[in-house]
């Protein structure tokens, strides 16, 4: 087993664990840290699946996109609570 395969296995196991924890958590805002772990693991594994120069940009775009999404969800949730 090469280091790449070992790293891919670790990333994939962490992604599955984080995905299950996202569903089991009841509080909506506390789901976001687990979603962040899942996106870390997925961004790492798409680099390990296909090593190519464009993959760096793909991983960075995916990670920044999902971070923006979490930011918007959390901000809208906080604003909605405060206006009530």
């Amino acid at each position: 087993m090469t280091p790449e395969e070992a790293a891919l296995t670790v990333c994939v196991v962490v992604a599955a664990y984080a995905g299950i924890r996202v569903l089991l958590e009841r509080n909506t805002v506390k789901k976001l840290p687990f979603l962040n772990v899942c996106s870390f693991a997925v961004a790492g594994s798409i680099v390990l699946i296909l090593p190519h120069p464009l993959t760096i940009i793909a991983a960075a775009a995916y990670f920044i996109g999902t971070t923006l999404e979490s930011n918007a969800i959390a901000s809208t949730y906080a604003g909605g609570i405060r206006e009530e």
């Binding site: 790449e4 790293a7 990333c11 962490v14 664990y17 840290p33 962040n36 772990v37 693991a41 790492g44």
Partner: peptide, 22 residues
């Protein structure tokens, strides 16, 4: 130590902060 090990290592490190117990 291959950079691939650092990708897996960073995933484990963020798991210990955000993923085990808040």
């Amino acid at each position: 130590i291959s950079p691939a090990s650092f990708i897996a290592g960073m995933v484990i490190a963020i798991l210990t902060i955000q993923g085990i117990s808040s």
